[in-house]
Design a protein around this nucleic acid. Sequence first.
DNA 1: TCTGACCTGCGA
DNA 2: TCGCAGGTCAGA
Length: 268
Amino acid sequence: MPELPEVETILRQLKPLYVGEMIRKVKVKPVRIFQNVTPAEFTNKLSGREVRGFSRRGKYLVLECNGLYVVFHLGMSGIFLKNKTDSLFPNHIHIEFYFESGKMLFYQDVRKFGKIWLYFSEPRWPALGIDPFDKKFTLKKFRKLLSSRAMNVKQFLMEQSTIAGIGNIYANEILFRAGILPLRKTAELSVEESTALYYSIKNILKEAIKRYGTSYSAYRTVSGGQGENQNFLKVYHRENQPCTRCAAVIKKVILGSRSTFYCPKCQR
DNA sequence: TCTGACCTGCGA
DNA sequence: TCGCAGGTCAGA
């Protein structure tokens, strides 16, 4: 699942439902998603706390309670559900939150690639790059980042320590919108191309958030619904299908061991 | 810089 | 039965 638009969608749904709620009880399964805290500590420290807010940085979601911060990285298949009955894989629900008001919240992660940390002060992000919706992410800043990394442009987009939040689906779609081949080197992009790429990042992500993210397999919103952005993908998972813009056949190559899709005619 | 490992479900 | 999948990280 979760790239920036999916995490943002989850955040926007969690906020109105749970901010101000008192956690009565937390049940966890002893799975290896817990990083700097044991499952038992996690339960003990969270019970009796009030949910103060949720925030996001790149693909990371932060739950803030009074006096502590829980950082979630949802891996490939982590989701939150407000109803257990919406789960397609109830055996893979690892955390259950029960609130004083009677509300509940469930964390499910089928593949267990997700990670959870617990902090008693604001989490630090030493290795995390700038968020594309950060005010400081300007065109000038973007060009500087481009020139600082000598690599192909698709891997550049997915490198979380440079720009945080873009994964495989959106990297493919961003490059199609900008008309740039994934294998092009960052250093060789023209001024026009880097400008197109910058606005493509912003617009593709913004549109995906508006459509509640992209649902493949396990990804669901907090209310159990599907995202809608999968209906608008131009290249991702469209190998051998005609390009919606020019009708050329969409190609697939493996780049950095990830499937990479592009239109050989629209992207140069 | 690249590959394999982590884990499970699904479709070919 | 096998290969693939939205991610990250250690180790070669």
